[in-house]
């Protein structure tokens, strides 16, 4: 919880109105971002993302499972989020459950696509080992270690980086002609793995409305003054992959459209810088 005096509230709002925020940023600027990949050795892929005081980790674990009955040709992807009490004492015990669920739902909307599996961030058909029988299941877990606002965007960047870092072990399918006879063998060689195609994985940009103006990447102090916010997931083609509106105040449709277009513009800029950062992080990992 952020406690602000009346004078501080006015200072934040007036600063935003003059396009000069508390930390010297303009309304549409992100804080400096740092990405580190391969931070959790026991996961198939992982990444840690820091946005000033916000610090999150995402991990991807791949397990073999069976496809859901309605979609035999698709693998499965699951997303969960946990806010550690280290981030804020409010998350102690069952205190963080609502926030966990809200963040997980928003990420699921942006990354998992529809019930049929179409429109997911990763082409789910590439996760199939034997159609209708065996597939890879990707468990994506987000952990919030420290929070200074804009957790959702940081998590989405961490998930994108973790997916780029993910290695799926090679599987040899042994041919039986019918479905029942088909069998597979998992490679024991840790050097034999394939990467996922993450070209279409979006990042989320949250546009928050403070007073009459909207800003991106709000800090905790700014978030306490937000009337409503729209989170837009944008992929590298500039397509919108998911939308979540939060906050209690209503928005005029024209303002909403304006916020979405800001989200798209900032999202495209963010995604290209995120992709360069991920590539750089992967290079330092390999050099080690």
């Amino acid at each position: 919880m952020v406690g602000l005096s009346a004078a501080e509230r006015v200072y934040i709002e007036d600063g935003i109105a003059q396009d000069l925020r508390l930390d010297g940023r303009g309304r549409q600027h992100f804080r400096s971002l740092s990405i580190q990949t391969g931070v959790i050795p026991q996961a198939n892929g992982s990444a840690r993302v820091r946005l000033a005081g916000t610090d999150v980790i995402a991990s991807v674990k791949a397990e073999l499972g069976s496809p859901q009955p309605g979609r035999p040709g698709c693998g499965n992807m699951f997303i969960s989020v946990e806010c550690s009490p280290t981030a804020a004492p409010e998350f102690e015990g069952k205190g963080g459950e609502d926030t966990n669920l809200e963040l997980a739902k928003a990420l699921q909307r942006n990354f998992l696509g529809g019930a049929s599996g179409a429109g997911a961030a990763i082409d789910l058909t590439t996760l199939i080992v034997i159609e209708g029988k065996v597939c890879w299941e990707l468990y994506i877990d987000g952990l919030v270690l420290s929070s200074d606002g804009n957790i959702l965007d940081a998590l989405s960047i961490a998930v994108k980086a973790a997916l780029s870092n993910t290695g799926i072990p090679k599987v040899q399918v042994m041919g039986g002609l019918s479905l029942e006879e088909a069998d597979f063998e998992l490679s024991d060689n840790p050097e034999e793995f394939s990467h996922l195609d993450t070209a279409q994985v979006p990042v989320t940009v949250t546009i928050s409305k403070v007073g009459r103006y909207h800003i991106v990447d709000a800090t905790a102090e700014e978030e306490s003054q937000v009337s409503s916010a729209v989170s837009v997931a944008v992929n590298s083609k500039g397509l919108i992959c998911g939308l979540t509106k939060s906050g209690t105040a209503g928005l005029d449709p024209s303002i909403l459209m304006d916020m979405i277009s800001v989200g798209k513009r900032v999202g495209l800029k963010t995604i290209s810088s995120v992709e360069t950062d991920i590539a750089a992080a992967e290079r330092t990992l390999e050099a080690e």
């Binding site: 069952k94 877990d141 952990l143």
Partner: peptide, 18 residues
Amino acid sequence: EYSMATFSTGERRKRGKG
């Protein structure tokens, strides 16, 4: 309060708090 991240062990396990 002690908590374990879901990804902290070799086998992924969702641990309920408490």
